[in-house]
């Protein structure tokens, strides 16, 4: 069975040379990239018979993977300076920087969480880097990315050098702790409270990590993927329209 599937997969492998619209197809990354989920079936239907015929569909969802040198443009300069500055502090860059991703003209450093504060401080203070403005933190929940379910994503802007980079830090669901960046970027105070409120990421050493949007006694973390959207079916022109999270899903 699995063999059959594999051969079918190979046969359907997109050939970018031939298929000009290959970039629009969802499975284009093939084996490259970082798998965050395996999608089976379609329309969100996973019980009952396979009436649609889509039940056997297997799709690997992959985010862009690590890039190799040269990254292009000023990316190499920033990466060199960061690695050099970390080395000066006696920190092996490979220990701090998990991987570097270049995608869609944006540079992302995946940072080990225990080194986040030091990396951020270096990025802020080093004259060659000087990322003085942090635009806050955004949480992302990848429930199927085992061991790295919760991601905190920071965008740092350098007004001095007119650059923008992204830092990404992950934490497992069972131990949702990420060090707080408030001591480096005070602007993250509210942003981290918001991310805690919605994702339950605990930012260690935050001065007052409390809920900010939801009521203080709220249960659960609303923007996690396992937290339901809620809603009730409504009647429209005689038909029952299901609540938004109950509607057919193509994702």
């Amino acid at each position: 069975m699995s063999d059959a599937n594999n051969t079918a997969g190979d046969a359907n492998e997109v050939n970018p040379e031939k298929d000009l619209s290959a970039e629009n197809l969802p499975g284009q990354r093939g084996q490259g990239g970082e798998e965050i989920r395996v999608q089976r079936g379609m329309f969100g239907a996973n019980n009952g018979g396979d009436t649609s015929g889509y039940g056997g569909l297997v799709r690997s969802v992959r985010l862009p993977g690590p890039a190799s040198r040269p990254y292009g443009g000023w990316f190499d300069e920033v990466a060199d300076e960061l690695e050099g500055a970390l080395e000066e502090q006696g920190l092996l860059p490979d220990n701090a920087i998990e991987k570097t991703v270049v995608d869609r003209g944006e540079l992302t450093f995946h940072i080990e969480r225990e080194h986040l504060v030091r990396v951020a401080r270096t990025l802020r203070d080093d004259p060659a880097l000087r990322f003085e403005l942090c635009t806050g933190v955004s949480g992302v929940h990848y429930p199927h990315d085992k061991g790295r379910e919760l991601h905190a994503v920071y965008h740092l802007r350098s007004i001095t050098h007119n650059r923008l980079i992204r830092l990404e830090v992950s934490a497992p669901d069972g131990d949702p702790h990420i060090p707080s960046l408030v001591s480096v970027y005070p602007t993250n105070d509210w942003h981290e409270r918001e991310t805690y409120d919605f994702f339950g990421i605990v930012f260690d050493d935050h001065p007052a990590l409390t809920r900010i949007m939801m009521p203080d006694d709220w249960q659960g973390f609303p923007q996690r993927k396992d937290y339901p959207l809620g809603g009730i079916p409504v009647e429209y022109k005689g038909a029952q329209i299901p609540a938004p999270d109950q509607r057919r899903s193509y994702s």
Partner: peptide, 30 residues
Amino acid sequence: PPAQVYTAVESPKGELGVHVVSDGGTRPFR
């Protein structure tokens, strides 16, 4: 296509940034 981007515009109040993540579906992932 699955990926993430950050785009920012200068709104009257300052930097309005959007962090969009897609998992290759027809709906935003985040």
